[in-house]
Design a protein around this nucleic acid. Structure first.
Length: 619
RNA sequence: GCCCGUGUAGCUCAGGGGAUAGAGCAACUGCCUCCUAAGCAGUAGGUCGCAGGUUCGAAUCCUGCCGCGGGCGCCA
C-alpha cells in the first residue's frame, strides 16, 4: 500500500477524527479554467444520456496527436449503462461536437473521447487571462489562518543541508497557501529549550568553570558580552553530545542542567540568552540569504510559561498518568496495529521535552494566534513524534476538531552511499557553504558568458546569487517531497536542462523580447487564434495553471509546480525557436505574440515566485 | 520483532486506474549573417524489484515475498 502523495485523508485507523483539517475547496471562481469548462460540457452530455455527469471528467490529452483533452468516462460508464463503451463514447461525442468551444471530437480505442478545442476559443480565453492579475487561479472561498512551522533551526547547531529541505519546502508551501488567499503565519519554531541546552551548559562549565554563570552564589549582573561565539558552540555541541551518549553520568548532568535552566536558575538563564542570541544571528542571516522570511520568531521557550498551567489542566481533566516517575499522556488506540509510546509531558527528573512544548505551542497557536490549520514541515523520521503530539492534542481538546494538524514530512537528503549526507570528513555540509558554492558556480558561468562582460559588478553579483539560489531551490523542490534523494553537488551547480536557471533563462529571454519590442515601438495587442503548432501548444499549457496550483495546494507539495514550470518554459522555448516575434511582419500577429509571451512571463514568474525563486532582468 | 517509507533507462528522478511509461544528466548527430546557444532539433537507452489477485484496462489498487532507508518512553 502507501502511495506517495495524495490528497490528505484519514490517516489514523480508528482515530475519532481525521488529523487533517477540511481540505475541500469550493472556489469562488471568476474564470472557469478550460479543463473544468470542458468537463462541464462533456458532463452535460453524459447527463443527457441518463448517466452520471462525473463520467465527463476531462483531462489533458496523454497523446497530443489525438486532441487537446480526453475523457475516459465512457469505459467506466459502460457497466452501469449496460452498453458497449464505444457506443456511449460515440453518443457523447455527437453531443459534445455541437459545443462552439469544441472544434473536433473523436472516439478512439476502447472508448476514449478525444477533444480538440476551437482555435478562436483558445485565443479569446488567453486574451481574457491577460486581464486577470491571478492568471486564472481562483482564491479559496473560506480563507483560514494557517501556521506554517518550518526551518527548524536549533541553538548551537549550524544550519546544514538537512535544514535546506524544511526551509525551502516550507517557504514554498507558505507561498502557495498565501497565494490562494489563506492568512499565513510563518514560524521557524526555534529549538532552544531542550536537552541540547543542558549539554551546552555543562560542556561550557567543564571548559570554563570560572565563569560566573555557574556560581550558584553569584548575584551580581552577568557579563554583557557572550562568553562563546557561534564557532565555539558548533564545536562544543558534537563533542558533548558524543560524551553524553557514551557516559550516563554526563547525560544525567546535562538533564539536570536542562531542568535547572527550565526552572529559572539565573546564571543558566543568562548564559542561555547569550547562546540563543549568538545562534539566531547567524541563522537569520542564512534565512535572509535564502530569501526566506518569517512572520514570528517563536521558539520552544516562548511557551514555557503556559506549560505548567497546561499540565495542571490536563491533570485535572484526567488525561495524565504517572509512569516510572514521569508524567505521560497515553495516545495509543484500541485498533492500533503497532505500539505507539505515550507522550512524555514531564520527565522523571522534572524536565520538559519537545513534545511538551509542542503541545503547549499548539495551544498557543490555537488560542492566541487563531490557527485553523498548522503545517509542520519536518523530516519524515519524526512522523511518530507528530502522531503522538497530534493524538495528545486531540484527546485533550487542546486542538479542537476543526483545527487541522498536519505533518508535512519530507525525505532525507542522502549521500551517494544511500545514507544521510555527510562530508568526506564525516561532518555535515553547512548551508552557508552550500549557498556560497552555488553562487560561485553561477558567477563562473557568468564569466564564461560573453554577454555578461559589461554588466556592472553589483548586477553581476546579484545575478550570480539569484541564479545560484534558483539552482539550489529548484534542485530540491523538483523532487517528490516524501522521497529520500541523493544529494549531488553537481546537480545543484549545474545550470542546464531541468534546472532553476533554465526557467530563469526562459523568462529572461522574454524580458529581452519585450524590451526589444518596446525599443521598436511594437505594442502588445489582443491575443488571437493560434496559427502555428508551437504557439497553440503554448496557449494550451498556459490554461493549465489553476489545476497545477490547486493540486500543489491539496498535496502541500511544490514539486508539481516545479515540474509544470519546467514544462511550460520548455514549451515556450520551442515557440521561441519557431516564431520570431520581432521579425514578424503581420502587425496583428506580432502584437498577439507579444501579449502571449508577456503572459508566459507572468506565469513563469508566478510559478517561480511560488517556489521562492527570483527572475533577473538579464543573465 | 512491529510500524512507516521506498524499489521505474547507465546515473539522478517524475508519473500513482486509461492509449505506444516520461524528463534531465551522461553518450552520439545536427543548428548561432536571425528577439540571449544557461537554448533548439534528432539518435540510442526500460521484464516499472519478484509472484499472485482485482479490473474492460495496473508502473499505479490489494495480498505475499525480497532488497534498501528510517522509526519504535523520558534526544530533537
Amino acid at each position: 500500500m502507501s502511495p506517495r502523495l495524495r490528497v490528505p485523508r484519514r490517516r489514523l485507523g480508528g482515530t475519532p477524527r481525521p488529523v487533517s483539517g477540511p481540505t475541500g475547496h469550493p472556489y469562488a471562481c471568476p474564470h472557469m479554467p478550460l479543463r473544468a469548462h470542458l468537463s462541464d460540457i462533456v458532463g452535460d452530455a453524459f447527463a443527457s444520456l441518463g448517466l452520471d455527469r462525473r463520467f465527463g471528467e476531462v483531462v489533458p490529452a496523454s497523446r497530443p496527436q489525438f486532441g487537446d483533452f480526453q475523457c475516459n468516462g465512457a469505459m467506466a460508464a459502460a457497466r452501469e449503462a449496460g452498453r458497449p463503451p464505444r457506443e456511449i463514447a460515440a453518443d457523447v461525442a455527437g453531443i459534445v461536437a455541437r459545443a462552439p468551444e469544441v472544434a473536433g471530437v473523436d472516439v478512439a480505442g476502447p472508448g476514449f473521447i478525444n477533444i480538440t478545442v476551437a482555435d478562436d476559443t483558445l485565443g479569446n480565453l488567453l486574451d481574457g487571462l491577460c486581464a486577470d492579475a491571478r492568471l486564472g487561479v481562483p482564491t479559496v472561498d473560506r480563507p483560514q489562518v494557517v501556521v506554517v512551522d518550518y526551518g527548524g533551526p536549533n541553538v548551537a547547531k549550524p544550519m546544514h543541508v538537512g535544514h535546506l529541505r524544511s526551509t525551502i519546502i516550507g517557504d514554498s508551501v507558505a507561498r502557495i497557501f498565501g497565494f490562494v488567499g489563506h492568512r499565513v503565519i510563518r514560524d521557524p519554531h526555534f529549538g532552544d529549550w531542550g536537552l541540547q541546552m543542558g549539554m551546552l551548559i555543562v560542556e561550557l562549565e567543564r571548559r570554563r568553570p570560572d565563569l560566573p554563570y555557574f556560581d550558584p552564589d553569584y548575584t551580581g549582573p552577568y557579563p554583557q558580552e557572550p562568553p562563546v561565539t557561534l564557532d565555539d558552540l558548533q564545536e562544543m555541541y558534537p563533542e558533548v553530545a558524543a560524551r553524553c551518549a557514551d557516559d550516563p553520568e554526563w547525560a544525567a548532568k546535562a538533564r539536570r542542567a536542562t531542568v535547572e535552566l527550565q526552572q529559572g536558575r539565573p546564571g543558566y538563564r543568562a548564559l542561555w540568552e547569550h547562546m540563543v542570541k549568538v545562534s539566531q544571528e547567524s541563522q537569520r542571516r542564512d534565512f535572509a540569504d535564502l530569501g526566506v522570511t518569517f512572520d514570528v520568531w517563536y521558539s520552544e521557550s516562548t511557551v514555557h510559561d503556559r506549560v505548567g498551567p497546561m499540565i495542571e489542566r490536563l491533570r485535572r481533566g484526567g488525561f495524565v498518568e504517572e509512569s516510572d516517575g514521569a508524567l505521560i499522556v497515553r495516545v495509543d488506540l484500541p485498533d492500533d496495529t503497532r505500539e505507539l509510546p505515550p507522550l512524555i509531558l514531564v520527565t522523571s527528573d522534572g524536565g520538559y521535552l519537545y513534545g511538551t512544548t509542542d503541545l503547549a505551542t499548539i495551544e498557543m497557536r490555537v488560542e492566541d494566534m487563531g490557527a485553523e490549520l498548522v503545517l509542520y514541515v519536518v523530516d519524515a523520521r519524526q512522523s511518530d513524534h507528530f502522531e503522538q503530539v497530534f493524538r495528545a492534542a486531540r484527546k485533550t481538546g487542546i486542538a479542537p476538531p476543526d483545527v487541522g494538524l498536519e505533518h508535512i514530512a519530507f525525505g532525507t537528503m542522502n549521500g551517494p552511499d544511500g545514507k544521510p549526507f555527510k562530508t568526506r570528513e564525516g561532518g555535515v555540509v553547512r548551508l552557508r557553504d552550500l549557498i556560497e558554492m552555488v553562487t560561485a558556480a553561477a558567477d563562473k558561468r557568468l564569466t564564461e558568458a560573453e554577454i555578461a562582460r559589461d554588466y556592472p559588478p553589483e548586477e553581476r553579483e546579484r545575478i550570480a546569487q539569484q541564479v545560484g539560489l534558483a539552482a539550489l531551490k529548484f534542485g530540491d523542490l523538483i523532487n517528490n517531497r516524501v522521497s529520500d534523494y541523493v544529494f549531488d553537488l553537481e546537480r545543484f551547480t549545474s545550470f542546464e536542462g531541468k534546472t532553476g536557471p533554465y526557467l530563469q533563462y526562459g523568462a529572461v529571454r522574454i524580458k529581452s523580447i519585450l524590451r526589444n519590442a518596446a525599443d521598436r515601438g511594437f505594442e502588445p495587442g489582443p491575443i488571437v487564434a493560434p496559427t502555428v503548432d508551437a504557439e497553440r501548444t503554448l496557449m494550451l499549457w498556459l490554461t493549465r495553471l489553476p489545476d497545477v496550483v490547486t493540486r500543489a495546494l491539496e498535496l502541500r507539495a511544490p514539486n508539481g509546480i516545479a515540474e509544470f514550470a519546467y514544462e511550460l518554459t520548455s514549451v515556450f522555448n520551442r515557440f521561441y525557436e519557431r516564431c520570431h516575434i520581432i521579425g514578424e511582419t503581420d502587425p496583428g500577429r506580432r502584437a498577439s505574440w507579444l501579449s502571449l509571451v508577456r503572459l508566459t512571463l507572468d506565469e513563469i514568474s508566478l510559478l517561480l515566485g511560488l517556489l521562492g525563486i527570483d527572475v533577473p532582468d538579464r543573465m
